[in-house]
């Protein structure tokens, strides 16, 4: 049985359906990436899966007692709330100093436990969010645009970390990607979302799918930039175009030389 499954799921905010008839399931050990333009319902789907939104139609089924580690899209810490990294890791369950130190070491930010969350850099912050998610011994890791604000080597490093974690603990990984053209090569499935599921399959299949091209423009020429282990150096030296936009643009056709 899959960890979590949406059956014929529709979600609407006051009339307008944001998601229509979405069928989705993720298994243990599987990495699934969701891509889609702004307003395509990516975050809505994640929220509905987490139980934060009541579907207007259909249902979400979870494995009973499913432990979810969630890495939110952004976490705006109100300046009025003091929060050290160590304290944050103990939310909602208390964690020993040893476990905290171990998990921070694991995600590559070993010496930040005493710092305030607000004092961390973007990359450190994402890793601390991941560390907290890992402390719940998750069966399913849910990451909503985890690489937003990271530079390209940062993204590559983060994706590699996710892969290692998956290999270590064998959890399912559900990830929303903000960059249509940069998807983890190790994704078992890519789901292209635009209110409904346009197409899905392995990264190479989706990048060639006509639905994907229709949605994101022919200009992309179907180019995914696939990050892989031996592929974490910067290919885009001197590349000036902005990767952060969600609209279609010319992606540099990258060759995977791994």
């Amino acid at each position: 049985m899959s960890l979590i499954a949406a059956q014929d799921l529709s979600v609407g905010y006051g009339g307008d359906a944001v998601l229509r008839n979405v069928n989705f399931a993720i298994d243990t050990n599987e990495i699934v990436t969701i891509v889609g333009p702004n307003g395509s319902g990516k975050s809505t789907l994640i929220r509905a899966l987490l139980g934060g939104l009541i579907p207007s139609k259909g249902q979400v089924k979870r494995t009973p007692g499913l432990r979810i580690g969630y890495v939110p899209q952004k976490l705006a810490i109100d300046a009025t709330m003091p929060m050290s990294v160590g304290r944050f890791l103990s939310l909602p369950k208390r964690q020993s100093a040893q476990r905290q130190a171990d998990v921070l070491e694991r995600v590559g930010v070993p010496h930040v436990a005493k710092q305030q969350l607000s004092a961390l850099s973007g990359g450190q912050f994402q890793r601390v969010l991941l560390a907290r998610a890992l402390l719940s011994d998750p069966q399913l890791l849910v990451l909503d645009e985890p690489t937003q604000g990271l530079d390209q080597p940062g993204v590559a490093g983060f994706y590699r970390l996710i892969e290692e974690v998956r290999d270590d603990i064998g959890c399912g990984v559900l990830m929303v990607s903000h960059d249509l053209h940069v998807v983890m090569a190790t994704s078992d499935r890519v789901i292209c979302l635009n209110g409904h599921i346009c197409c899905e399959g392995t990264p190479t299949v989706v990048s060639a799918a006509p639905e994907y091209r229709a949605l994101f423009g022919m200009g992309t020429r179907g180019a995914f930039a696939l990050y892989q282990h031996a592929h974490d150096h910067n290919h885009d030296e001197g590349c000036t175009h902005d990767h952060s936009h969600d609209h279609a643009h010319h992606a540099q056709k990258e060759t995977t030389d791994a």
């Binding site: 979810i68 976490l75 909602p92 369950k93």
Partner: peptide, 19 residues
Amino acid sequence: WSALITVTLNVDLAHASGI
């Protein structure tokens, strides 16, 4: 306490932890 702090920090984070 713990649930209240988690909710105050981020609602989705709370949902994911079953709060």
